[in-house]
Write a protein that binds this DNA or RNA. Sequence first.
DNA 1: TCTAAAATTCAGTTTCGCTTAAGTTGCTTT
DNA 2: AAAGCAACTTAAGCGAAACTGAATTTTAGA
Lengths: 219, 219
Amino acid sequence: MRILLVEDDYQLGESLKSALSSENYAVDLERDGANVLPLLRAGDYDLMVLDLGLPNVSGDEILKKIRAADDPLPVLVLTARNTTEDMIEGLDLGADDYLTKPFDIDELFARLRSLHRRSSGRARPVLISGDVELEPKTQVVTKAGENVTLTAKELSVLEALMTNAGRFVSKSRLEEGMYTWGDEIESNTVEVYISRLRKYFGSGFIETLRSVGYRVKKG
Amino acid sequence: MRILLVEDDYQLGESLKSALSSENYAVDLERDGANVLPLLRAGDYDLMVLDLGLPNVSGDEILKKIRAADDPLPVLVLTARNTTEDMIEGLDLGADDYLTKPFDIDELFARLRSLHRRSSGRARPVLISGDVELEPKTQVVTKAGENVTLTAKELSVLEALMTNAGRFVSKSRLEEGMYTWGDEIESNTVEVYISRLRKYFGSGFIETLRSVGYRVKKG
DNA sequence: TCTAAAATTCAGTTTCGCTTAAGTTGCTTT
DNA sequence: AAAGCAACTTAAGCGAAACTGAATTTTAGA
């Protein structure tokens, strides 16, 4: 799950980033509003968290442009303002949700989960492939009803595969879900995790297509 | 997937080329800006990566001309400049994306994927020929509803045929989709893959026209 | 700070897709 | 009808890609 976090305050930005990372999001932190649109164009983000109080380009501007371009990216807006008027204005601009500082970090998490659920095809709380089930919200995984405990990265790979059940997911795509850009990794980490997942779920669970990617079967 | 890589720096050019090749792109590397337009005219490229700091003809010029000619080719610009102004100027000239040196190779990959998805996502839902369907984005192929798993090169040939359904596609055209120019291979590889595809989809699926090429029927 | 678990790297092994090559089939032309 | 050429098919070797167990490094929690 990739998030673009746009926040100019250094302190807040870094701490939000690490909090989100520990919730298992892949986070890119951007401080300069002017870079946001190019980043979005390139980035394949699932969500954006946008501070409205930016220098250079205002958050409002960014939002307007995104929506003008018909980009359906879910956006959660952060702001210091807190009057009802401001809030309504923000939502009218195309924000999907709104949070006023100071806020509770867990509330942010909850809202992000909800946003994501809403955007990624509504009522599908549980991912299923064969006898393996994954509940994204609680990150609980079961095989044939039995609980399986996975580590964060194992989950990240599994989730990427299962949300794309039936389709091949490339190695680099899987890496994207695990890492923030610039974490340059020159290794076979993905392969290792694929190997681990097969140990948990059986060797037939994940199919390999050489030099294309991996997939799990649908349903 | 064919990419035209325009980069005058020898070192960088070569290493980018090999990196892109290993990501399964067919890459042509051009060092001289003056050759770019003729190449584009001939080349059938899906993407272009353009360094702005070229000798002879400047990258800006090239971009301008391409857009003036209404060529919708997705272009990613590379440059050493990195001020916001330059970036915006680049985008205004018609670049679809922008990356400043030094950059992370994985970021480049991500951006290219995204570029391609955007440009091809526009008008290429599913390719259909008879009871065979191919979803280019996900690389999923079905015959009469049944899933068929193809290898990377098999897919490459099939995709080329199906995007040109109803028309004959020459052998060398099919090779282009699989290889980088200069790899000029004197062999019957294409024939081998045609043979394989017929095994999967029936001998009537692909029609041969001697010394012209192959085609699948439209719709 | 220390320790255990997780993440990552490394290296040896295995697998499988690509290519080649050689023999066969089947058009086409004289 | 025969020759010549293009396409078809099959099978095998090679090499790149993937797999996996274990060692090493990093991280997070006590």
